[in-house]
Design a protein around this nucleic acid. Structure first.
Lengths: 340, 340
DNA sequence: CTGAAAGCGCTAACAC
DNA sequence: GTGTTAGCGCTTTCAG
């Protein structure tokens, strides 16, 4: 049995198509007897109005697009989870896409989504897009009158609602914490030095150093490219200076650093403390467990979805754009010393 | 500037709407001069045909629906990744939904998706659906002539393409491996005893025991409910008998078991070996690292997507339904003994 | 109470 | 070469 339409029901009862429509929508202008019969028939045959037709008519799809750089990253998975949950609760579906950190794929995806498939978009910029600094595709998206929420990886060049992690404060308080536990030579290992997020974290780190009158040392700021050998760069770092703490800007790197230190028989945290960004599943279970910064991904997702849907449903009122700053939490475990 | 339509362009040039359509689609029946002008105008104003209108016309949305029980589970994230990748490569978008292991949410989602939003569906049954055994919603989906691929958590009650992990073989070979390393009392800890997958794994386990003429002992088959205290049940298990190996049917449980054993000062693998299902990110990094069964999630996703899209694009030909059985790999790490 | 007609944005026969 | 018409599935005036 094929998908059933109003037309089918109409011819079945020998009435017009609009009568059927009204009957199904329980209009008062239709006689009870007819309504009952038609409704029963519709139920029996699992009639469901075609969403495409409705969307075309109402200019509202009840879909929202989500583009994240990499779904395998636990932080984004969590955000995604938060988005999905609140969007569903508010009657929206998610069209999910991955940019794979590629500028081109991001552009293509945004264009695709802007041609009528979604009522709005939640996006975290790909690394390549951020380092390129070319945002024409999202400007164009906004010109189509479609609301956009940028989260985590954002840019000043675009005016829209944003949800960002307070990365500056996060690395500031982390660095300060490390210093208070007695560390003097805090290094940073970053795989995301091109992204807005990576830069903010470096700024917070520098600010904390400055506040404690510790000079910033370029050599303690280690940038890791995709093909770089972390082991090698870490050896260089350790050869340079008496490093006593390392902040890793992502979870994977934090764990890798831990393992490299262990293989070098360096005691964590006695000799070197480690703190990592993104409190995922790994950090709790490695040994020693890692002190991490939680970004509250699920909450960020919820916030973004609510912001977007509010915007979708109040298109007339021009609310000013907001930027929500989500504070992080430092989750202390075994890889750092306690403040004495 | 609002979204631009054919109508807008038509009135701009004082021609008919269909002329514009033809011009934009580069039809030979339109004069070069007009075509050039219209195409230039369209490009300049970022004209994009409305996908909803096209979908309504072609009865093809180029969307596929994906419903997984829980996106935070790394296996499903991987499958999802695989689906996304190949669907995109073949020109399809993903509408992603989570059932949250709830029967009701699954039913609602399937119904929603069946009303014209997608060309087909990839689904892994929620645990509640499997234990309930009620598949009316997906039968109804199939009646709408929409192709369906079931993966991992499947059922015999539905005829469609399926992609499943060879869970029987997986636990068979795992159990056999453990026995060959000298273990005699292999226990199983399952949180998914209601699901098809969980049951198959128990079957494979039993078969291996039988092949080695080791009697099956009910007490070594531990079922954990969501609210149960693993620690307690494990203590009971260990009090019962000289357990020398534990197979955990999911990664989280494997890690938990490891930590509980460590807290009891039981040596892994010298006193007790551990093997877990799902080779996620945790198992490699805990200490000792865990021997795991990899289900090749990404590959399962790719396979499912290809199967579905093949079916979508060859609706006329009645290909018989296939069930693809994906073999697992046993990834040996430190939590098991080697075969001497 | 029921039906005809218009229109959402687009394409494809079929005229002119 | 260009325009008219019909139709995808549906809702919504507006007539009857």
């Amino acid at each position: 049995m094929k998908k059933i339409t109003l037309k089918d029901i109409a011819s079945e009862f020998g009435v017009s198509i609009s009568t059927v429509s009204k009957a199904i929508n329980d209009s008062h202008e239709i006689s009870h007897s007819l309504k009952d019969k038609i409704q029963a028939y519709a139920k029996k045959h699992h009639y469901k109005p075609n969403r495409l037709a409705l969307s075309l008519l109402n200019k509202s799809t009840k879909n929202i697009g989500v583009i994240v750089p990499n779904i395998l990253n636990y932080f984004f998975t969590q955000v995604f989870y938060g988005i999905e949950k609140t969007a569903n609760a508010r009657g929206y579906n998610i069209i999910s896409c991955t940019s794979d950190e590629s500028y081109l794929k991001e552009v293509k995806t945004v264009e695709l989504l802007s041609s009528g498939t979604v009522d709005g978009l939640i996006l975290s910029l790909s690394e390549e897009t951020q380092s390129k600094g070319n945002f024409a595709h999202i400007e164009e998206f906004i010109e189509n009158q479609l609301p956009l929420v940028l989260f985590d990886r954002v840019t000043d060049k675009i005016e829209c609602d944003k949800v960002i992690v307070d990365d500056f404060e996060a690395s500031y308080k982390t660095t300060r914490h490390l210093i208070k536990t007695g560390c003097r030579n805090v290094a940073v290992v970053s795989t995301i030095f091109n992204s807005s997020v990576g830069k903010l974290r470096i700024e917070g780190y520098k600010k904390a150093l400055a506040d404690f009158e510790i000079p910033y040392d370029e050599r303690l700021n280690v940038q890791i490219n995709r093909d770089d050998d972390l082991q090698l760069l870490l050896s260089l770092l350790l050869g340079n200076k008496e490093v006593d703490a390392i902040i890793a800007l992502d979870e994977m790197t934090a764990v890798d650093v831990l393992y490299i230190l262990k293989s070098k028989n360096i005691q964590v945290p006695e000799e070197i403390s480690i703190v990592g960004f993104t409190n995922g599943r790994l950090s709790k279970y490695v040994s020693p467990s890692l002190t991490m910064i939680s970004q509250h991904g699920k909450y960020i997702g919820e916030l973004s979805a609510n912001l977007l849907i509010d915007r979708i449903e109040n298109k007339e009122d021009f609310m000013p754009f907001t930027t929500k700053l989500v504070k992080t939490s430092l989750i202390q475990r075994e890889s750092t010393l306690s403040i004495s």
